[in-house]
Design a protein around this nucleic acid. Structure first.
Lengths: 159, 159
DNA sequence: CAAACAGTTTAGCCTTGGCTAACAATTGTG
DNA sequence: CACAATTGTTAGCCAAGGCTAAACTGTTTG
């Protein structure tokens, strides 16, 4: 399969997924993924907190624990980290709030998430699957790809 | 799967990414991602070992370390795990080999990886970006979405 | 054939992100 | 208003996946 594209210019490395990439490039791929993993969870929390604030007016640790299917202790520990990172403010036994940095992160994450989700739906993936896939994919989609996904979704809609 | 949209019945949840999903569904999303993370690294190793065997005839720990941009000690430890999981066989100071289970996993991973990579290229993402994104995305794409991606790529090519 | 070098493994450390159990504070109700 | 229920926190455990440093093989070569 897959000579790829037949007509375009593509002077790039392209070619099938056949040969091994050069070591340095390969290393960058893996390092990028590893890196993404470090921020992933943080972003998920911040994004969720943002959503809860928006739709519920408050974000309680218990809510987060339920929605993430994780123990309250885990959430509590995580909130301490988010505090240290100055992404949220929290007084014990009160709702959480996002700092400015937190809000910015929440918006960015939410936007990425929505673009990926809408793209998958536009592609023809059914809703429940799209939601799951989007949750996993969102942290691994580059800006370049994101832009293309968005364009694709728009085209699909005006048709 | 995948009649999808526009005309069909879809009584489903659909609608914008606007409302919060019901708690249980939300929980499943996160749990699925967490789960994927556990196997991700394993799959990456197995896939890479398979590729090295195929293209180089042997898979040495040093190679893996270089390509993954990780220390040799880390690789060594990981190989012990892969051994325990009966995915690879290794004699000390010799090349690695995949067990049957390992080969199967390598092929599956490789196939997923290629589908995602080719899809991204077909979408118009440039090669170097596509490689990075594919590396991160491959573990989070459902079979349903994968099938759709493959179909899309094929259509794109016969045009 | 011994020494140097490259490759591998082991030991021991660190951080993250889970968990349970026990305790503390807040809220809601009889 | 007291006390039960809910919610949050803390302590202490575990596994995974990194790291460096040190020890050990195996191979190459002077």
């Amino acid at each position: 399969m897959t000579d790829s594209n037949s007509h375009a210019s593509l002077p790039a490395q392209s070619i099938p997924g056949d040969a091994l990439p050069p070591v340095e490039q390969h290393a960058v791929q893996y390092a990028t993924v590893r890196n993404a993993h470090e921020t992933e969870l943080i972003e998920d929390y911040v994004e969720l907190i943002g959503d809860l604030l928006k739709h519920r007016g408050e974000a309680r640790a218990a809510d987060i624990a339920n929605r993430m299917a994780v123990s309250q202790a885990t959430v509590s520990k995580m909130i301490r980290r988010l505090n240290e990172l100055e992404l949220v403010t929290s007084k014990p036994y009160r709702s959480l709030f996002l700092t400015e940095a937190g809000q910015k992160m929440a918006e960015t994450s939410r936007a990425r998430h929505d673009i990926v989700l809408h793209f998958l739906r536009a592609l023809g993936v059914k809703d429940s699957t799209a939601r799951i896939d989007a949750e996993g994919m969102e942290h691994h989609v580059s800006d370049e790809t994101l832009a293309i996904m968005q364009r694709f979704t728009e085209q699909q809609q005006n048709s």
